[in-house]
Amino acid sequence: MSPINIAIVGVGKIVRDQHLPAIAANSDYKLIAAASRHGVVDGIDNFKSIEAMLEAVPAIDAVSLCMPPQYRYAAAHTALQAGKHVFLEKPPGATLSEVADLQALADSKGLSLFASWHSRYAPAVEEAKAFLASTKINSVQVIWKEDVRHWHPNQEWIWAAGGLGVFDPGINALSIVTHILPKQLFITAATLEFPENRDAPIAASITFRDADALPVSAEFDWRQTGHQSWDIIAETDAGRMVLAEGGAKLSINGELRKDTPEREYPALYERFAEIVKAGKSDVDLAPLRHVADAFMLGKRKFVEAFHD
């Protein structure tokens, strides 16, 4: 089968760090174009807009959309209308309604739409899921704390309405939790901390339950300095499970069971090629739905101003 002619839209840090190396290492793809207001990719045709790119390069089969979520719907709609398969960087959109509309459009045209959740492809996630399926879970605690100044320096869009704030990393935790737990969760309470000069939260505390009243709590914070915490801890009848470092390491009762190098983005592009070839979509909205529920149900607490 011929390689999938793919284009990148939105050339920023995540594209250079993750997308471009993953595409280059995968023989299922040939990168043939890019569109971005500011960035360019050497060695291929570059354009200022997706419209100009699609008009000039009809050979494109698929596009990978990596711009901020507030702007992704219009680009995805344009690509699907042009008959292109679409890879959505996380979160897949600014609202649930946008993504539902894109899924309906993709289905109507027989195209593949991929809502990518890279943390689900962390190396220890599947083993953690298997362990939890084998025992009774008594409680789950999520601790996702990092330094926004290190990971998102000078990225103003992330503080704007629709930018998600601390839920930009927090949704990674939610993508893992919704994958490894056997039953659907429901938010019962949330507190969102908003800097007085920002439109998106810098921290969030959330409690969940499932239909069997399993207690699950999550603490997201962007003010962490020093050691960064990306941990999911489950107390079970078979002992304590710790899924650490964003899903890279798994320990059971203090014994390290899994610790292998991450390859999340290569795995995402393998999955995208798989669904394109199969003519189907992969769009799970559970993580984004929890974020929406937190904004709907959460109490707002205003804290001191944040300056980058």
Results as ranks from 00 to 15, higher is better:
Ala218Glu: 02
Ile232Tyr: 03
Glu219Thr: 07
Ser229Ile: 13
Ala203Gly: 09
Ala211Glu: 15
Phe220Pro: 01
Asp237Ser: 12
Val216Ala: 04
Asp237Lys: 06
Arg240Glu: 15
Ser217Glu: 05
Glu235Lys: 11
Leu243Arg: 04
Ala244Cys: 07
Asp212Asn: 14
Gln224Ser: 09
Glu245Met: 13
Ala248Asn: 09
Ala203Met: 05
Ala213Leu: 11
Pro215Leu: 09
Gly246Cys: 13
Gln228Arg: 11
Gln228Met: 14
Ile206Tyr: 01
Arg209His: 11
Arg209Cys: 00
Ala238Met: 13
Ala213Phe: 08
Asp212His: 11
Ala238Arg: 14
Leu214Trp: 11
Ala238Asp: 15
Gly247Phe: 10
Ala211Phe: 08
Ala238Cys: 09
Asp231Tyr: 06
Trp222Arg: 06
Ser205Leu: 10
Pro215Trp: 09
Ala211His: 13
Gly247Arg: 08
Ala244Gln: 12
Gly239Pro: 13
Ala218Gly: 06
Glu245Trp: 08
Thr225Leu: 06
Phe220Met: 07
Ile202Trp: 01
Ala211Pro: 00
Arg209Ile: 07
Ser205Ile: 04
Leu243Val: 07
Thr207Asn: 08
Thr225Glu: 11
Ser205His: 12
Ala204Lys: 03
Ile233Ser: 03
Asp221Pro: 01
Asp237Cys: 05
Thr236Met: 09
Glu219Phe: 04
Thr236Cys: 09
Ala213Gln: 14
Ala213Thr: 11
Ala218His: 02
Trp222Val: 02
Leu243Pro: 00
Ile232Val: 12
Gly239Glu: 14
Gly246Ser: 13
Ala211Leu: 10
Asp221Trp: 02
Ala213Cys: 05
Asp231Ala: 09
Glu219Arg: 10
Ala234Cys: 09
Ala203Gln: 05
Thr236Arg: 09
Arg209Met: 00
Ile206Glu: 01
Asp210Arg: 04
Glu235Gln: 14
Gly239Asp: 14
Glu219Ser: 10
